[in-house]
Structures are given as C-alpha cells and as structure tokens.
Design a protein around this nucleic acid. Sequence first.
DNA 1: AAGAGTTTGTGAACGCAAGCACAAACTCGA
DNA 2: TCGAGTTTGTGCTTGCGTTCACAAACTCTT
Lengths: 238, 238
Amino acid sequence: MTESTPAPGEPRVPGAREIPEATVARLPVYLRALTALADAGTATCSSEELASSTGVNSAKLRKDLSYLGSYGTRGVGYDVAYLRYQIARQIGVTQDWPVVIVGIGNLGHALANYSGFRSRGFRVVALLDADPDRQDEVVAGVDVRPFRDLDRIVREHGVAIGVIATPAVAAQNVADRMVTAGITSILNFAPAVLAVPDGVDVRKVDLSIELQILAYHEQRKTGAATDPDPLAVQGGVA
Amino acid sequence: MTESTPAPGEPRVPGAREIPEATVARLPVYLRALTALADAGTATCSSEELASSTGVNSAKLRKDLSYLGSYGTRGVGYDVAYLRYQIARQIGVTQDWPVVIVGIGNLGHALANYSGFRSRGFRVVALLDADPDRQDEVVAGVDVRPFRDLDRIVREHGVAIGVIATPAVAAQNVADRMVTAGITSILNFAPAVLAVPDGVDVRKVDLSIELQILAYHEQRKTGAATDPDPLAVQGGVA
DNA sequence: AAGAGTTTGTGAACGCAAGCACAAACTCGA
DNA sequence: TCGAGTTTGTGCTTGCGTTCACAAACTCTT
Ligand SMILES: NC(=O)c1ccc[n+]([C@@H]2O[C@H](COP(=O)([O-])OP(=O)(O)OC[C@H]3O[C@@H](n4cnc5c(N)ncnc54)[C@H](O)[C@@H]3O)[C@@H](O)[C@H]2O)c1
Ligand SMILES: NC(=O)c1ccc[n+]([C@@H]2O[C@H](COP(=O)([O-])OP(=O)(O)OC[C@H]3O[C@@H](n4cnc5c(N)ncnc54)[C@H](O)[C@@H]3O)[C@@H](O)[C@H]2O)c1
C-alpha cells in the first residue's frame, strides 16, 4: 500500500539506491538518536552505541546504514554530524515539507500545537475544517480555514503531504479532495480504510488497533482466555 | 520487542494456538469491518467482500482467519456476528480493559476525549499528571489526579495497560513507575526509546516517523534529491 | 614497523510473511 | 440424485527481513 509500482527494471530516481521499506522505517529513529548525540557534543559513535540507544541489533543497524553508502570508519565508528546529515538527506528532511491538517477537533488541535513538526522537517501551512464555527479560531499561530480552500492552499504552497484528523465517515471524501488538489502522501488518523489511486501513499495511525494488539498479548500473559466455544450463536457450524 | 519469550515447546496458554504477529495486527481491522457490516444488518459475507473492504488480499484474509479456527462455510462465506465474536474473543476485547493515561497535555486531552476507546474494548479509569495546575481539571468526566496516585489506581482497578503522553524526557521515568506499579503493556506516544524488563510489551506511536517515511517516498516520486555528496563536512572520508 | 585490538561492511543461513492455485466442502436448481 | 457453480482452507513457492559470523580496514602502543 505504501509502495507505488516501481518502473520495472529502471530505478525511480537515477543514482538513488533502493532502500528496503523496513530500513526506511528505522532511519528516522537513528536520525533522532544522532541529533541527541550531536546536542550532547558527541563527535563519534560506534554501531554498538547507536544500536543500543535505539533498541536495535547492531548488525541490523550496520546493514541499514550500508544501504546509504559507506559512511563509517572501521576501527573508529561513525562521525555523528556527518551521518546525521546523510540520513536526513536520504529521508528528505534537509528542507522543510509544507503540510496541511484537515479536521481541527480534539486531535487536530493537539497536532497543530505539536512542536515536534518544525524540528523534524515539517511545517504546518494550513489548518482546515468544514465546520464554520471552527473557522474563527487561531491555533498555534495558524488560523483555521474553510475546507474548500484546500485546492488554493495546496497550489500556493506546493503541499505534497496531508494529514486527516476528521471523523471516519468524512475521511474518504477528504482523501479524494486531497488527491484532486494534488496531494500525493496522506497520514490518516481516522479509523477508516482509504482507497487512493496508484502513486499516492497512505499511512495510517490507529490508536485502537495498537491498544487491541497490546490487549491480545496481555490476555495471553495472564491466561485470561474466554471459554473456547461458549455458545454457537445464530448460524454456528454445528 | 513485542513478543515476550515464549516457553520453548509449550504454548503460553493451553489450547490457544500461536497466532503470527502480522495476523494479530490485522485482526482489529477485520473486527472493525465486521462491526460495520453487523450495524448495516448484513448477516453473511465472503472473504472477498471482507478483504476488499479492509484493503487486503482475500487469500491473506482467509489464512489469517484460519489461525482462529474454521469459522467459515464453503460455498457460503462467514457468519458476520459469529466471526465478529470469535475475533473479539481472540483479541481479548469481549470485556473492557481498564487503562490509565499519563501526561494530560495537548495530546493527553485529545486521548481522554476520544470516544473510540469505550466502543473498542477499553475504559479510561484515570488521568494522571505531574503538574499540580492540571489536577483541578476534569476531562471527559474523569478528573486529573497527581502522578503519585499511580500505584493505588493500578492496584484498585487492576490496570494492565498504560498510555504515556508526557514529554520525551519524562517517558522513561514514567515507564519505570508503571512497571513497578504492575502495568505490563505500554502504549508510548513520546518520541523516546523505552527500556523495559522482559514480559512487558511496549508499542510506540510516532507521528514524526510516519511523516518522515512519507517524506522519503515523496522525495523519490518528485525526484527532488539533494546532491549526492555536497560537502565533506568535518571528518568525512575523503 | 609490526602486532594487538577495535569496528565496519557484507556474504550466507534462516525464518516469517505474502500470494498463488487448487482440492474439498458447501448450495442450488433440475 | 446429480451436476454446475461458489467459496473456504491450505500446501507450496517466492521474496523480504533478521541475524550470525568473519574478513577487511582502521587505530594505537611499543
Ligand atoms: N481524539 C483522539 O485522541 C483520537 C485518537 C485516535 C483516533 N482518532 C480519530 O481521529 C479523528 C478525529 O478525532 P477527534 O477526536 O479530533 O474528533 P472531533 O470530532 O473532535 O474532530 C473532528 C473535526 O473534523 C471536522 N470535520 C468533520 N467533517 C469534516 C470534513 N468533511 N472536512 C473537514 N473537516 C471535517 C469537524 O468539524 C471537527 O472539527 C477521528 O476519526 C477519530 O476516530 C482520534
Ligand atoms: N501533541 C501532539 O500532537 C503530539 C504528536 C505526536 C507526539 N507527541 C508527543 O506526545 C507527548 C505529549 O505531547 P503534548 O503535546 O501533549 O505535550 P504537553 O507538553 O502539552 O503535555 C505533556 C504533559 O505531561 C505532563 N508531564 C510532564 N512530566 C510528567 C511526569 N513525569 N509525569 C506525569 N506527567 C508529566 C505535563 O505536565 C503536561 O501536562 C510528547 O512526548 C510529544 O512529543 C505529541
């Protein structure tokens, strides 16, 4: 769902190696750890140190980094500032990405107020909501605009990434409008499965699913299993 | 990180088959789709229908369901209500899980106000914050308590699942306190890597990481790559 | 200059997950 | 009762991700 169909044979971007999806998902974690090290004044670190501070296996870390190139020095380790820059460049966060947030309710407010955006390569250029009552408000220095302004804002700011924080019923409609406006990456917080055309990436963040996964394991730990087949409700096999 | 060491040879819960992690992560999605079907009055559905409404391959769906048992009927499909119950039972959400949220700031407020909790098997029994100024507040009918009440609340309500929505610097300390109090599953929203003892599950939700993954793919799409090796900053190889 | 110690980069083995393809098991109509 | 049509459950293949283990490449001490 994340990968758009790669042109068979030829790489999408000339000169850019193909980085495995699992590695891409870990690069931001390394980036964060390297930023912390840089802030602490550390100039150099080994794969072992970086691995333990990010909670991964050191061999996995080295293999991940090897997809970017050979940026380490044997017997020494990695130059923190240099590696940090290389990862940021690969991810594409050396410049800021303009982002719009649609649905400024409970969650939308929290997202708009989140300071971690700016420091990690993103800039909220607009907050959109369909409810006219919301549209007087100013959240974190950005004023809430009517949803119909989407096209204009996307065009003016060259927005490629959109965040959906509306109720589930509205999510597909919002996604459609985003795609029409030219957005090609969507982060979806609504508990809904979105259908989008090829070439558009969707990632979902679903709190309930995360909790339910925890509940599954929790149930196994405590051995608190419900009886295996308590009642053959309407139309059960037997 | 999610899987605690399984006793080698013997299953953790007698009579409970081992369900692959990837399948566990999809069961909540199926559950949600089945709930929607049930609400719409649909009595029966095929794997093809359920698959397309959840965005997965139908063969994968059938294989996932086969880990729970043989609950379908060939030539017919699955009984919606029956399958729904079976999935809910396997996940462990036939009864409500008591949950505490620590850190009632921007995000904590949104989480506390989130109605999707109750309807999906979870009940917020307490909101905790270290800041005394927060502790007069009542959010969504639950009043904010001092963080030091954690032990008592966990004990009184039998809480097994905790949510961390504090700043990153406080997250490890909060996690330690949770573990001490008896919590064995943690959902962490702070951008920090948590160290916990064996037997404790941690899942993290990290907005910045999700956005950075999108940015990576976006960069490849537009071909907007930074120059491959722009400057050999302090200590670069060559 | 050489040997001991350290750390990277990666070949190779292994295990998990995805998807195809089909037999088995069902329904329905004649 | 039989045959055509439908849909499940799963064996098998393929691909991806993780981990081990080690040679290559470096530093440092003597
Ligand atoms: N609040 C949470 O902590 C939380 C957690 C997980 C998931 N979610 C999900 O995030 C979404 C938002 O949750 P919330 O609690 O902020 O809900 P909310 O009702 O507080 O806010 C939704 C906002 O979206 C706006 N909206 C509705 N339809 C719209 C449309 N078509 N176009 C533009 N804006 C529209 C509404 O006016 C409202 O301001 C929901 O889907 C919810 O399930 C929320
Ligand atoms: N706001 C968002 O949308 C968002 C998005 C992604 C991630 N996050 C992360 O979620 C966390 C919370 O974000 P926020 O915007 O709500 O921050 P916030 O500063 O608004 O709220 C943090 C709350 O935690 C409380 N707190 C601090 N130390 C504590 C401790 N030791 N014990 C108990 N409570 C403590 C504070 O009093 C405050 O009320 C942060 O780590 C942030 O990076 C937030």
